[in-house]
Structures are given as C-alpha cells and as structure tokens.
Design a protein around this nucleic acid. Structure first.
Lengths: 201, 201
DNA sequence: TCCCCACGATAACAGCATTCTCCTAAACCG
DNA sequence: CGGTTTAGGAGAATGCTGTTATCGTGGGGA
C-alpha cells in the first residue's frame, strides 16, 4: 500500500497538466496490480486524499521545525506566513517534494474544498491547529488583537497565503514571481499592516 | 451559438458536483446537435471559457454599478471588496445567476489558473482593470500608500477576497457563514487594517 | 428542377475509472 | 508430503464522456 503512495508522489512530481495521473499509471509504477489497488483504495479519490493528507502533514512538520527557531510570537507568525507562502509557490523546476503542490494536487485540493468539504476540513486540521497556536501566542503577547476567533483567522490566513502564492500573479497578469522573496515580503506587509494608510486622526 | 451559452448557464446553475455538466447535456438542452456544437466550439474547454468570460464581465459590470453609487475613493474600495466577496460566496440556494460561481465554474476557474495561465489572465482583465482604477483613485486621495504596483495589488486583493469567500470557512472547519455579513466585515477589517496590533512606538 | 450545404440523428472511437474473471503460486494445515 | 486456501497478478469487460465521422434530408439559390 505504501508502494502505491510512493508511486503516486513520484507521478505527481512529474505530471504536467494532470492528464498523466491515471490509476493505471500509478499501478504500473508501483509494480503491483490494478486488483490490489482497488483492494486498498476505494477509488482514485481515496488515493489522492491519502496523498493530500501526507502532503499537509509534511508541510505542517516542516513549518513547525522552522517555527522552533524563532524567538518571539510575532517572529513565529511572520515565519509561518513567509515559509508557507514559499511552500505554496508553484514549483519552478527544482524540488517537487511532497510539499510542493503540483497542478494535479492543486486541482484535487479544489475538488476537495468545493465538493467534499468535510474531508477537506479534516485534511487541513494539522495546518490550522499549528497556526492557531501561533496566533494564541501572538495574542497573549499582544502582537495581534485579542478576542478574535483564531480558527476563523487561521482559515483566512491560510487561504490568503496559499492562493496568493498560487494565483495572484496569474490573475494580475504580471510576469512570474522571479524573486518570490519580493512577493513574500509584499504579502507579509499586506497581511500584517493592512492596505489602508494609517491616518493621524 | 448563443443557445449553447444559454444552455450552458442553465446547466451550470443546476449542476451540483460538476458531474452533470456534460457536452451531451448542453447539446440536448440547446435543442441543437452535437455536430453543430463542435462547429462552433473547438471543445468543451472553449465553451467553459466563453461562459467564464461572460461571468467575469457580468461581475465587473455589476461591481461598476455599485461603485458608481459611492462618493469617496475609500468607500469605493470598501464597496469593491465587500460586494465582490458577496458575489464569490457559494450560492446558498437562491439565485444561481451568471455571477454566482457554481462548483463547475469554480473548478474550471482553477483549471484555467493552473493549466492555462494565459487564458486565465486574459479572462480576469475586466476585474483587474476595474480594481486598478479604484486603487489609483485611492492612492491619489492618499487612502492607500503611493508607489505600489496596482496590478499586483489588484491580483492580490482579488485572489484574497475570492478564495476567502469560497474556502476560508471550509479550511478552518468553522460552520457555514450563516451571516456572510459578519465574515465580509471581518475580511475588510483584515484587509484594510492588517493583522498586527498597532503599537505606539 | 437541380445542386449545395448547413444541420440533425446517430454510430464509431478513444481515454479513463472501475469491476470481473481466470489463474498462479505461495502459505498453511493435516 | 499432498491438498486446500487465498492473496494477488494479468488482462478482458463495462460504462461514461469527449470527440470525430457517416449518412441523410430539407431548404435556399442558380
């Protein structure tokens, strides 16, 4: 069964437009049979869900690792946003790791979010709870206002960061984020400071 | 040809999970033949693209209408965000109008954004330029900082508002946005004022 | 009247997910 | 050791969908 997952990740990493990600292909790469596949997974959907779960877990783990290196709650919040943004950027070439979302994974993520909201919520739990703790700390230290619903805020931040990384450039028609650095900085300024000028009055 | 588009919208309005939106179904509803369909459209993709274009245009028109009623640049920016947020909320029941994104349309939007970025950019132009003018005015009047790249900012705002409306609740696992009013207010506070406490220092 | 051709009806084909059928071979048990 | 059970491999069969091709007809123009 793990071999199916491995084959799945391998294929995700390479599949360009999602067209090549077929059950048959996964089965072939896994060196097992179609029969076994449907013995372990109720269908293609279940495989993708399992892959998605692992990707989210892996992302949360890597983020937690980065957070541990920061000293203050505000730095942790900043690190979360910037690093998550990096992980959500479309893979340019290099490392199509478990975290780096491929077109197939992105598309599946949307199917989940639109058509299987219960499963989607469950899958996102690791990221949401991690961010909630970061927000709790930041509220404790007064870096973010108290009294907010941190689950809701976490959902808003995650969707903002994820989809800005993935799509903002395409929507605006700007050229590629050659230096994701600049874009990440912009987004953090946006999220932390807001859009509107701070008036004296 | 218009009949195919009409049939398409009709079907979009009703199609639950995207499964029912087949070329055959559109053809049947249009009262024309498969042959004619492929005479006018190179494929299903082209039909969806045409529907998407129309949906964006219609959305931009309705927004422009609302903006005309506002007196100040900042009010226009606020109206844009809140009204666009409303339009992107998943249709609860009532009016599955041209603007209200159905699961099928949302899914297609993602396919565009991930796999056909050029087409996606082109389709979003009406919304982006509209928001750019709003931002230009707001910068002129000093309501937002000057020196920003308004195309980029517009892309960021659009993706933030659209996907927050569509997915933030699912990601956070919160219950439905019973009163989209509250959520829209939250998002505007977030966008305009930022996340981080304003310190005296 | 005759020809052309746009279009409807419908069959044919291809890709993919899913299921089913047959069969081998290893494991297990007496 | 021999018989039986069973996991699983190979691949054919089914069904749905997008796409293309075939055939025929009815109406408009020469």
């Amino acid at each position: 069964m793990q071999r199916f997952l491995d084959a799945g990740f391998e294929l995700l990493a390479r599949a360009e437009s999602g067209k090549e990600f077929t059950v048959q292909e996964v089965v072939d790469r896994s060196g097992q049979s179609l029969r076994s596949f449907y013995q372990y997974f109720a269908g293609k959907h279940e495989l993708l869900l399992a892959l998605f779960d692992e990707a989210i877990l892996s992302t949360a783990d890597r983020l937690e690792e980065q957070l541990a290196r920061q000293d203050t709650p505000l730095e942790r919040l900043h690190t979360f946003v910037v690093e998550y943004y990096r992980m959500c950027l479309p893979a340019p070439k290099g490392r199509p790791s478990k975290n780096n979302p491929t077109p197939v994974m992105a598309e599946f993520c949307h199917q989940l979010l639109t058509a299987h909201q219960t499963e989607a919520s469950r899958a996102f739990v690791p990221l949401v709870t991690l961010l909630e703790t970061v927000l709790d700390d930041a509220a404790q230290s007064g870096d973010v206002p108290k009294g907010l619903n941190h689950a809701e805020v976490a959902g808003a931040i995650l969707s903002t960061v994820m989809f800005n990384a993935a799509y903002a450039h395409t929507i605006s028609g700007s050229e590629e984020p050659a230096n994701g650095e600049h874009a990440a900085t912009q987004l953090w300024a946006f999220l932390s400071g807001g859009l509107v000028t701070r008036r004296a009055g």
